[in-house]
Design a protein around this nucleic acid. Structure first.
Lengths: 190, 190
DNA sequence: TCCAAGTTTGCGTGTCACGCAACATGTGCG
DNA sequence: CGCACATGTTGCGTGACACGCAAACTTGGA
């Protein structure tokens, strides 16, 4: 990870992802087709072929940020103090992980209002359920293959998704507040 | 709906979807790329161009069955008796809707073990949350825009997904049983 | 300084989604 | 009954894309 090579690779990946999201936001939900691979690559300072070494579709590139953040949710839960009850640990982990830094409203709105991007983001979000379920299983003293941790992880991920959608509509409170309210509807034994 | 034209259209859609799924299962998870549009169209007895009038990607065609069934879950809930408590109504609606007829094991396994198909199925499944949330809101006397019905719908959909995965692993009971066990972990006020 | 591993890039190929316009097949009306 | 009209189907052409391959280039270590 501290490898210079690896870091540079990570930087390239991030540059492409950022450029892709920026261009997508510029074009708006209706103009996704206008965001050409050539433009993304140029904006990121790489060749189209290199872009294609990192991502195999525009959607994947645009949603890379979302995907990376979601993937780390399990680690965030593991970082909570050991004695903390499950509900509290999950809630605090989610709030910390998804409000620092606060998500980019324009980017999130772009993704949520474009079916193709929404599908990709969904996939990324759901992939994150597996590590989250593992972390939940550890904390609850259950087996990761069991139904409970997986159903709970799915419910938590769903709540985060719903909270994100609500946060985009005008008049909703801070993301922190919406997240807590959404999570309060998820069943978690104490 | 009883329109001859509409029925024929629906039949065509189903023929294409069925053919696509069948070919995909034949090739196995690793050979998705070998399922060409040309083959799907030919197997369904239509031209490639017509296939493309119904679906805009192979993944969409292959997952059409899943998508159609998921989309109707809200209606299944509405069909439950009015006085029934929410938890019971949801559980029975889900079990009835997803076990009659029993899902195709091979097809489900194919979809669940192919990332690209899994993504598409996920999208379809999540799209079904909206009508489900609406039906839940009706039954619970809540507003559809509120957090509770949407979070609950997401949790229910997640539980069904997890149940499907478990059902595929050897030694799990009937789909009916697994579904009920998964749903028992979802919080629903009585 | 020089080598080996890894990364970027250009090119070629096969596939695909979709607009467009002609064609066929039902549908409803006089 | 037959004629226009609407709707579904098809072939063709175009633009874009993902990816295999091999060459050029960069980086880190001996």
């Amino acid at each position: 990870m501290a490898d210079l090579r690896t870091r540079h690779k990570e930087a390239t990946r991030e540059a492409i992802g950022t450029a892709a999201l920026r261009l997508a936001v510029e074009q708006g939900p209706s103009g996704l087709a206008l965001v050409r691979v050539h433009d993304i690559a140029q904006a990121a300072g790489v060749s189209p072929r290199t872009y294609n070494n990192y991502f195999s579709s525009r959607e994947e590139a645009i949603c890379a940020f979302q995907a990376d953040r979601a993937r780390l949710l399990g680690d965030a839960l593991r970082a909570r103090p050991a004695g903390e009850p499950l509900r509290e640990a999950v809630t605090e982990a989610v709030v910390e992980h998804f409000t620092r830094p606060e998500p980019d409203r324009a980017g999130l709105r772009m993704i949520m209002s474009t079916p193709e991007l929404e599908g990709e983001a969904l996939k990324a979000f759901t992939m994150a359920e597996a590590p989250l379920a593992e972390a939940i299983a550890e904390r609850a003293g259950a087996v990761a293959d069991d139904l409970f941790p997986q159903v709970t992880a799915a419910a938590v991920a769903g709540a985060i998704r719903v909270a994100g959608r609500h946060w985009l509509s005008p008049g909703s409170g801070s993301f922190d507040t919406v997240l807590r309210r959404a999570l309060s509807h998820v069943h978690m034994p104490e």
